[in-house]
């Protein structure tokens, strides 16, 4: 098992912190956003910052389930770092004139459902579930979305910000895959029985009903913006390759489930999309007011470097 030393990693995380105030948000370069890309970029950045924010809440739930104090502290930092990424991405949106006043980008209905699920049930999920889903989201973020963004946008401040975000994400992925392998230890039949028990959990089923349409909607949004589907394939393959590089990793049933699911998501011709796309359409009919106000953790997002 390609183990990493978590204590060393925690020290590295602590010594690699950065703040929005480290960046000159008024530096020249904002004008390099062309008017014809502005609308698409606004939608892309909005999806991106929400993925970061949803990931942040996932790490908060994982901190509660961490088997030791070091991993718990690492996840506490990752929770904050994903929030920092969302904040920094909002600051870029502000710089590019995409936000009015203190407003947050509007989350789509699938995001709202996912936020609601995270708020109510994520703390009850075993580490295995979020510990295998989050790496998938992060690898998609790191391997596809961010690279795409940097290809499309030449604003130097954007590059400066994503250099920092990428460095954070590299540490996140290191820990993510270490934990996935850790979760694959133990007798296979025990892992399998535990997985079956979790899959049957109604809270998880509700989570899947929120998560699957969200991924589909986001994939469609992103591809509509010009992201090549091959990028997503590459990201899924990377997840499979790294997650399955060791016997322990491959023995983790959740790795198998998530990587199979990733294949379905990027294969537009798969039957999987019929019911999930139907769910996307169905979700359009859910009135947002039915969900009530957003949880207060969402309101902690800010593009302001100082408070």
């Amino acid at each position: 098992m390609a183990a990493i030393d978590l204590d060393t990693m925690l020290a590295k995380i602590k010594s690699s912190q950065w703040a929005l105030a480290d960046i000159d948000w008024d530096a020249p370069g904002a004008e390099e956003i062309h008017p014809d890309q502005w609308v698409k970029l606004k939608a892309f950045m909005s999806d991106l910052m929400w993925i970061e924010h949803v990931g942040a809440r996932g790490f908060a739930a994982m901190a509660k389930k961490a088997p030791d104090d070091t991993l718990k502290e690492i996840y506490t930092y990752f929770h904050a770092e994903e929030q920092r990424h969302a904040n920094a991405e909002m600051a870029l949106m502000k710089r590019w004139g995409m936000l009015e006043g203190d407003e947050l980008p509007e989350p789509n209905i699938n995001l709202r459902l996912t936020i609601e699920w995270l708020d109510r049930y994520s703390d009850d999920m075993p580490l295995e579930v979020l510990g295998s889903v989050i790496p998938m989201l992060e690898i998609a973020l790191d391997g596809a979305l961010l690279k795409f963004l940097l290809d499309e946008v030449s604003d130097p401040v954007c590059h400066q910000v994503f250099e920092k975000i990428n460095a954070d994400e590299a540490r996140h992925l290191g820990v993510d895959f270490h934990v996935m392998e850790m979760l694959g230890q133990g007798r296979f039949h025990q892992l399998a029985v535990k997985t079956i028990g979790t899959v049957a959990n109604p809270k998880l089923i509700l989570g899947v009903l929120a998560y699957a349409p969200l991924l589909n909607r986001m994939r469609d949004n992103i591809v509509a913006m010009g992201l090549k589907e091959e990028r997503l394939y590459e990201a899924m393959n990377k997840y499979k390759r790294i997650g399955g590089r060791t016997a322990e990793g491959r023995r983790n049933p959740w790795f198998q489930i998530i990587s199979r699911h990733g294949e379905y998501v990027v294969d537009r011709s798969h039957f999987y999309h019929k019911p999930v796309d139907a769910l996307v359409k169905l979700s359009n009919f859910i009135p947002a007011r039915l969900l009530g106000p957003v949880p207060t953790w969402v309101k902690e997002l800010t593009w302001k470097p100082t408070a």
């Binding site: 950065w18 904050a80 929030q83 920092r84 904040n87 920094a88 800010t302 100082t306």
Partner: peptide
């Protein structure tokens, strides 16, 4: 400065 990147 806190880890979510904000200076209070």
């Amino acid at each position: 400065r806190t880890a979510e990147g904000i200076e209070h």
